[in-house]
């Protein structure tokens, strides 16, 4: 299944001074996979598009801080 966020598990040394971050994530937005934009992609309505920042649904990739996921919600 496609996800715009990838994860990896960095090496944790027994001698690391700070509590380890076990999972590191990074963003892989949809533009990396699209190549030349194919015709007839699904669109947002004009008003939705102005809010989303793109007309094209497949390019919409909102980013939320991993540190406060619970507080945020799509408004």
């Amino acid at each position: 299944m496609f996800t715009p966020t990838k994860a990896y598990y960095p090496y944790i040394s027994p001698f690391d001074p700070c509590p380890p971050i076990k999972v590191k994530t990074y963003s892989t937005p949809p533009n990396l996979y699209m190549g030349f934009q194919p015709p007839n992609l699904p669109q947002f309505s004009p008003m939705e598009a102005l809010r989303a920042g793109t007309l094209w649904k497949p390019f919409y990739d909102p980013y939320f801080s991993p540190y406060e996921k619970v507080k945020e919600g799509r408004s």
């Binding site: 937005p29 920042g53 793109t54 390019f59 919409y60």
Partner: peptide, 17 residues
């Protein structure tokens, strides 16, 4: 800021094209 980030994605797409 999320809106601005989305625009960066679109710009990157257009430069790739």
């Amino acid at each position: 800021l999320r809106f601005l980030r989305e625009r960066e994605i679109i710009h990157s797409q257009r430069f790739r094209e």
